[in-house]
């Protein structure tokens, strides 16, 4: 695909949870590569397996989870690492930004102390004072006003947007090579979302980290991602560079995602076309293609045989659909992909 060796190379990742109702297969044979410094958006609706995949990379899945496949980070399979070895990577080489900044910061410690702790867990030789100075710089970098005073504030003294900025500061404190942001703007006001994305981009530039942006909001993806990976029912449905996904999508699910998003550019008499039905059961997935029950292009073949994730002629566009090449050109839908 590219000459650079991937920073993160997930191969055939399968994650299952045992429940009383049966085995829940949250992630089903996912492949994912990330290259140094790039931004990959992982898009899908609830239950598509995007967050669970990220948790697998972070080593945050509960111990009763069954994980198969491999997650190689700089050539080391993270799934085979001991908890102890994993801890040295967590928050250091791989860091995570969580969805809800209201609950992701500990209410009884000052914001500063949480970032200082994050630094000193991995670098105990850095003095408390130096770590504090570094924390103030980080807070300034993510756009917290008066960082020297704010460093001693408790999380409840911060607004939602400021807390997410603080979370970003915490995540980049040790200059990770990989940043995983799990729905980082979902819990924020729309007006703050763009600012936080901008901060994330600044943070990424300052550290040179690769960023995995997990979201269900395609509009968010357009402005920031280099590549987009669309997931559905625990599987990868489409993967290519951002423009290709937006203008030349070869997958009915991706197209459905785009037409179900309202845009400011749309005329008032335009109707949104939501994807009918609900996401598939992870216990008893439908026969054939998992998207078949909701797909307007579905034919008999989709019932008989699950489609494979296949490359198109350019060799840079993967799509999981029997009719990837036969789908009509997007044309009229162009504008529906919001540009940020």
């Amino acid at each position: 695909m590219t000459s650079t060796t991937p920073l993160l190379d997930i191969r055939d990742l399968t994650v299952s949870f045992k429940t009383d109702d049966g085995l829940v297969r949250a992630v089903n044979g996912v492949d994912l590569q990330m290259f140094p410094g790039e931004t990959l958006a992982v898009v899908g609706e609830s239950g598509s397996g995007k967050s669970v995949s990220a948790m697998a990379v972070m080593g945050l899945l509960p111990s009763y989870t069954q994980i198969e496949g491999s997650v190689e980070f700089e050539g080391t399979d993270l799934l085979k690492l001991s908890t102890r070895a994993m801890r040295k990577l967590q928050g250091n080489e791989i860091a995570m930004i969580f969805q809800d900044p209201m609950t992701a910061l500990n209410p009884v410690f000052t914001v500063g102390n949480q970032i200082i702790e994050g630094i000193r867990i991995h670098h105990p030789q850095i003095s408390k004072q130096a770590a504090r100075e570094r924390t103030i710089e980080l807070l300034a970098l993510v756009g917290i006003p008066e960082p020297r005073q704010r460093v001693d504030n408790y999380p409840h003294e911060f607004s939602g947007g400021m807390r997410q900025r603080a979370m970003i500061a915490l995540a980049i404190a040790n200059e990770p090579k990989l940043l995983i942001a799990d729905e980082p703007t979902t819990a924020l006001d729309v007006t703050i979302q763009a600012q936080v994305l901008e901060v994330m981009r600044t943070a990424q530039e300052a550290t040179g980290a690769a960023m995995m942006l997990i979201t269900h909001d395609l509009g968010l993806v357009a402005g920031v991602a280099d590549r987009v990976q669309v997931m559905y029912g625990g599987r990868v449905f489409e993967m290519s560079d951002t423009d290709t996904i937006f203008y030349r999508s070869r997958n009915p699910y991706t197209r459905g995602l785009m037409t179900s998003v309202p845009t400011a550019a749309a005329r008032t008499d335009d109707r949104l076309s939501p994807i009918p039905g609900a996401p598939p059961s992870a216990i008893n997935p439908p026969r054939g293609c998992v998207f078949r029950p909701r797909c307007q292009h579905a034919e008999d073949a989709c019932y008989e045989e699950p489609p494979l994730l296949a490359l198109d002629a350019t060799g840079r566009h993967l799509s999981r659909c029997h009719f990837a090449e036969e789908l009509p050109e997007l044309g009229a839908q162009d504008e529906l992909g919001r540009s940020a």
Binding site: M58, L60, R87, K88, L89, Q90, G91, N92, A95, M96, F98, Q99, D100, T103, A104, L105, N106, P107, E117, G118, I121, H122, M167, L170
Partner: peptide, 13 residues
């Protein structure tokens, strides 16, 4: 709570 997950993600024992 998510802050516990966040602490684990930061490499805390």
């Amino acid at each position: 709570q998510e802050f516990v997950l966040a602490a684990r993600a930061a490499g805390a024992r």
